[in-house]
Amino acid sequence: MIINIIISTAAALVFSPLLIGIINKTKAFFSGRRGSPFFQMYFDLYRLLKKDAVRSGTTTIVFILAPVIVFCCTLAAAVLIPISPGTGIISFTGDFVLLFYLLGLARFFLIISALDTGSSFEGMGASREAFFSAMAEPVVFISILTILRLNGTTSFTDALGGGGAGNWIIISLATVPFFIVMLAENARIPFDDPNTHLELTMIHEVMILDNSGRGLALMEWAASIKLWLFSLIIVRIILPGSVLSFLLTFVIAVIIGIVESVIARTTLLKIPQLLFSAGIIAFLGFFLSFSKIFVWS
């Protein structure tokens, strides 16, 4: 049990910045550049953690605490996902609610810390984040319900090891929307552009504009852990049996990089439409998991 916790925590902390490096390298490759090194984010985190933080005069204790809370909640959520079969820490009915509400708590503190700065940009970012995540959450839950149903269990961590009775079509109907939501939740293109400097267009990045030094490091690290968490869930859904399946998260990172290279960012007005389409696919999977004539042979 303790060993499992240590392994999960270490994996989340160590591997998550690498995902960002892989995405950036893939994007650089597609645009004909050399790109920053794979381990750039580790250097950045090291540099930021050494630095002191500068704080705006309008902020309160909320702003100081938020990076720590965001980081801890995200890490706690990530630790709940077993990285290989049989390493689950807890499993009970409706454990996915705990998982996503830990993320929800992190988001809540991220949003109020952005509002705490009193900047009009950060207020806009916070309102966008709140709106779009409210649209993304139902999609996640529908996908997860489909997976739970296929595995005939009510515990998500158990379902991740179950493999969905090999019903590939329905699994992919649950995974594809989950992937789309992952892009939305982790501020990737087409929902948000992690590389942009245009504060008026940002969603996630604009909320951490005022953070610096250690606070910024924790926020960035938490964001990469969230990406790790989502890709680990996808990997564990697709390849439940293998011990080394977590290595596939790097493939997921490459896929994200490719997606970001070949499509442009959408306008904010169309984001609900995109999440809606993801929801439709998730619903289709959910319906089919009930359908009688859908017999997999």
Partner: peptide
């Protein structure tokens, strides 16, 4: 313009 919308290839080239 393509950089602003996150379309990298045209932007870089």
């Amino acid at each position: 313009l393509s950089g602003d919308i996150g379309y990298l290839s045209t932007s870089a080239y």
